[in-house]
């Protein structure tokens, strides 16, 4: 975009230089790195979705396939991978809920609900839902 205030004027306006961003820009600041990690969580969440799909497929293929799949899941490497996924999923959820107040402005009468209250409500709902799902799965 150019406002073209005086396009013909060149004498004291020599060519400008435009510094480009290094490929490693996200390593320059801790906040940039945390942002990139947050974006990277999507890869791990997607990986878990694929694992879930493979589980459903194994279930549809009968008892033998199911047992083989269960054995695969119990390998140390797979358990370690699940640990990674859990850590990234928790980080993803926490960052998601802490960013919620930036998009959401809740007004009650004249007062604006403080960000901390919004985050607390979100996290409480998240913990509640997780506890309910855990109860359903573990009591079955």
């Amino acid at each position: 975009m150019d406002t073209e205030t005086a396009p013909t004027y060149k004498r004291f306006r020599p060519s400008a230089y435009h510094p480009s961003m290094a490929l490693t820009w996200w390593m320059k600041k801790p906040s940039y790195l945390l942002y990139i990690l947050r974006e990277l969580t999507a890869v791990f969440v997607a990986a878990y979705a694929i694992i879930l799909l493979l589980t459903v497929r194994a279930l549809s293929q009968g008892g033998e396939a199911w047992d083989t799949w269960l054995a695969t899941l119990q390998r140390p490497g797979m358990i370690l991978f699940h640990g990674f996924i859990l850590a990234f999923a928790v980080y993803h959820s926490l960052t998601w809920f802490t960013l919620a107040p930036t998009a959401l402005v809740v007004r009650i009468k004249d007062k604006v609900l403080p960000a901390s209250a919004l985050i607390a409500v979100h996290v409480a709902a998240w913990v509640g839902c997780s506890a309910f799902i855990a109860w359903v799965l573990l009591s079955a």
Binding site: T5, A16, H18
Partner: peptide, 15 residues
């Protein structure tokens, strides 16, 4: 874009 020393080109921003 830098025009000179610490002076940047603001045209893009203004647009």
């Amino acid at each position: 874009k830098v025009l000179r020393d610490l002076i940047i080109d603001t045209d893009d921003f203004m647009g």
